[in-house]
Design a protein around this nucleic acid. Structure first.
Lengths: 218, 218, 218, 218
DNA sequence: GATGAATGAGCGTTCATTCAT
DNA sequence: CATGAATGAACGCTCATTCAT
């Protein structure tokens, strides 16, 4: 006959198969962002998700796979959305660029996901496999996405002809940097930076800077 | 008791004690830049500086203090030259911006000093006081330097009126990012990036983007 | 309450409960033989038997008991045949020895049962009571069987007089070793060994070596 | 001023660089023999040698290298001695065989080294790299050593012509088996076996068995 | 001062065992 | 009966730090 105390007694564990992976991924994202890849300890991830270290291994083969899953779960979907949008858009390429950059910021930059970009910058050198994965799944696709806009703009005479590959990186760099600032110096409450003003200025600059020679009304 | 003769007898190949900290700092810089903070092992630093692991602890209390010393030691000097040049320059502000950006790249970006920026980005979160120091001594001065050019351009009607603080960061961000790329994904031989093409494209974009409305010949 | 109809409705593909332990033991035998005790994982045994890991614990208290059961289950049966043959044989003792050795190889050495011997050699140190059981049930009877041949040979002046106990072990040792080689170094495809050549050479050696002094034609 | 108590107080560690590897190797040999390769824990080895786990890694890269060092240190020298003896011997090959077999027993079989052979038999399947090393350093050389005697005997008409490779293994097998028995069933005090009687019987058998047809006085 | 042998806490990973369902 | 999610104690290995020499 179980007493009230026994009835209340928390079972040694709770069976929550379906929810576990998400809880682990969320805990892992938090900790990877906060501490970096190497400094994130798996038992802390597990503890954060309310399970034991061994349980984590029921769902993810190892630390690297856990990280990849975090990336796949969080970084890849927004890229797909953006790809869709680009494919369907039919206004001016400058406007498309503006939408993409602000969308990027809203979906990734302003969220804790921006921490993943920072982490990859910081540690990719020590984890080549992870770096390769991230490059293939995120960086390449992100660059391709922007390059497509640039090429579209040039093709439609909305942008002056530039080297698309180089221009793409010039476009991406400030946005990446803005994300990184959130997790480095500016995270220490030094010198606040206003993301929207930054992005507006950037988009404005790009719009003018890519405008074809004859486009401007005199 | 060393006599003068003895002092002479051990010539240049015998390192003086005073040089030790510098050698350690230099080795530490190389390794921190290459591997990041956590992955840098202190016995490797010591070996790299030609001393034993114990000796390192004679000069630095621990790994963290060594890291802080590396940052403090290396980042301050190279800003004065640029400040001088700006003060003396009297051509078009676009030209000044171009000179500054390429100078930055030649003096810092292309050298191992770029690694310090990467390292600060990567690790500042774990060292708030280093971050504060770095911000005050390096970031602020660097930003001020660029901001002065922007303000000069606006004042002289060579740039259209923009928010100088924001524009400054939009200018800085791609250059910083270019430095970081050298030490992260692109260091893994993925997708090489051509610094000069990047910077040319950037300067071109900035020149056009900041051009005042009526400046363009029709 | 299962009716007869229900019993029929779940035909042969539905394993009966009674078969479970046998299937587990068979799977365990395979894996213990292949990997050794420590390296055999219980969930692999369970998977191999088509049940879950928990089910295994319904039939065996723990890994050690499973191991003991495997040994007990498999080693006793195949000795009776040989005992029969010896009792009925009435040719030359050398010929009997030859028959026995080749029979041993065919019935045990060349089958997976040889793995049990290897496994007992390898792990008996950690399971003294299994060792005792195995010794009593298998080793003693096997030795007795060979010793009977030796004693018969001596008694009939077909072998020269030797210490039967010692000679028995000298006879057995190479055959055991041949079985073990199949599961150790030579299993790694190093240096293949040809069992029949080995056994022929052995029998030949024994025949000549045990030949009485005056038996050889000059 | 150190008090007597302080003077006696054992230092946290003792500096004994030169002796350490030997102490560790000896401890490792004991534990490998007693527990097997997989079941030997490195911190136990360290504790057994009176040092901490980390210290072990100052001298050996990892478990596998430790084991290899144990083999190299203990198993290889006796082989070299035997090779020397064979090269210099000039009596009857039977006598050489006798010397070798008894030497083998005295130097290896009767010592704790025999446990290494048993261990390799038991676990080589799970550690292919170790197996390969052991095969190259010990098994091959051991076999070659015996084969040389067989070939010498045949060449000098002291042995009848047999397949040297096969005969070699028939000679080796009983000796190996004798070693293994010491660490398996017979280690449990079951059925003591008298090594010298066993080896005498074996040598006697081999001598007669390999004797050329016409050699026997009638 | 300088050395480098020694330490020991810590991390990623595995797996026998348990137990709520 | 059967399941399989969950546990937690180990183990191999690393490395910042200490301290006798």
């Amino acid at each position: 006959m179980p007493t009230a105390a026994e009835a209340k007694a928390k079972p040694r564990w709770e069976r929550r198969k379906d929810a576990r992976p998400q809880e682990l991924l969320s805990a892992a994202l938090d900790l990877f962002v906060e501490r970096g890849y190497a400094a994130t300890r798996l038992d802390e991830v597990a503890a954060c998700a309310g399970v034991s270290k061994g349980t984590l291994y029921l769902y993810f083969d190892n630390k690297e796979e856990l990280f990849k899953a975090v990336v796949r779960e969080n970084m890849v979907p927004p890229l797909a959305d953006a790809e869709d949008m680009i494919a369907r858009f039919d206004g001016h390429s400058s406007q498309l660029l503006r939408l993409c950059i602000h969308g990027w910021w809203d979906k990734i930059g302003a969220t804790r996901l921006s921490g993943i970009s920072k982490l990859m910058m910081a540690e990719s050198g020590n984890f080549p496999d992870v770096a390769r994965f991230y490059h293939e799944e995120v960086v390449s696709r992100g660059e391709a996405l922007i390059r497509r806009i640039v090429e579209r703009g040039i093709a439609m005479d909305e942008f002056r002809p530039v080297d698309a590959t180089v221009a793409t990186r010039v476009i991406i760099a400030p946005v990446l940097m803005l994300m990184m600032w959130r997790h480095s110096l500016h995270a220490c409450h030094l010198d606040p930076i206003e993301p929207n003003a930054f992005l507006d200025c950037l988009v404005d600059l790009l719009t003018r800077g890519f405008e074809p020679a004859g486009a401007r009304s005199c």
